[in-house]
Design a protein around this nucleic acid. Structure first.
Length: 268
DNA sequence: CACGAGACCTGTTCGC
DNA sequence: TGCGAACAGGTCTCGT
């Protein structure tokens, strides 16, 4: 589920419920969700830690603890919620953190792809991430340079978290459509004007997504509204909102890519 | 370096 | 109704 806007939505929702609380105990219900350290060390180190702040980097949720950072990547189906009082574990719960105000932070993850890291040095996990697209330091000039250093198809490149951090399958398709660029276009052949359009589109779809509290589709529902504004994602066969041409779907890098063949013509 | 395929997982939906 | 295939918001690793 979660791309940058969904993770940002969760951060904003959970921050007031978590900051200032202490962790009384951990119940790791699916050990393989934990990337590091070992389950035993995790339980020992996390106990008694105070939650100082909650933030996000790319699609990573970050709990800043007294002496560690707990990083959580939700991958395809992960979710984080805070439950009040005595809590009955649910089927897909992978971690419970019992908190000092009689609440429980629950990491739920049906597909078990999500990962947790408890580390004193978050850079070990986050170090290879590319620029944060909504950060002021991410400029069209930097974007142009990065696009032109390599020769890659645009769609897989935008999904590459070392190239740009936070985009996933929905928002890349939406951004490429808004910028009128074909998902298979070569990164080093986009003009400065096209880069400018893509730069603006990436930021616009992410900001729109955040304003809508993210996208909720299928059985994973978070209360977001952005699914009602999708222009191409998941709309194969339906009319393009701009020109009414039928949206097409291609598989690129094993991911579905949705685009309008008229608005996003393929050259070369 | 760029790209495709396979793995990791469970659940839902679609076609016959 | 049943049953297998396809598909799903992500990322890693391996082979060409």
């Amino acid at each position: 589920m979660p791309e940058l806007p969904e993770v940002e939505t969760i951060v904003r929702a959970l921050r007031p419920a978590l900051v200032g609380k202490s962790i009384l105990s951990a119940d790791l219900r699916w050990p393989r969700s934990l990337a590091a350290p070992t389950p035993l060390a995790f339980a020992r180190r996390v106990k008694g830690q105070k939650i100082e702040e909650v933030s996000r980097r790319a699609k990573y949720f970050i709990l800043h603890l007294s002496s560690f950072s707990l990083l959580i990547h939700l991958r395809m189906s992960g979710d984080l919620l805070v439950k009040e009082g005595a809590y009955i574990p649910a089927k897909h719960d992978r971690l419970h953190l019992r908190l000092s105000d009689d609440t429980t932070l629950v990491f739920s993850d049906p597909r078990k792809f999500g990962r947790l890291w408890l580390t004193a040095d978050p850079e070990e996990v986050l170090g290879d991430l590319g620029p944060e697209p909504l950060d002021p330091s991410f400029t069209p000039q930097i974007f142009y340079e990065r696009l032109h250093i390599r020769r890659r198809q645009l769609k897989p490149l935008l999904l590459d978290q070392t190239f740009i951090a936070g985009l996933g399958n929905i928002y890349t398709d939406e951004a490429l459509h808004m910028a009128r660029l074909h998902p298979l276009a070569q990164s080093d052949s986009v003009t400065a004007e096209q880069v400018e359009a893509l730069w603006r589109a990436v930021r616009e779809v992410l900001e729109e997504g955040i304003r809508s509290n993210g996208t909720s589709i299928d059985w994973v529902y978070r209360g977001g509204e952005f699914q009602n504004q999708l222009r191409v994602y998941g709309r194969a066969g339906q009319p393009c909102p701009v020109c009414a041409t039928k949206i097409e779907r291609l598989v690129i890098g094993q991911r579905g890519a949705h685009f309008c063949p008229a608005c996003q013509p393929f050259k070369e």
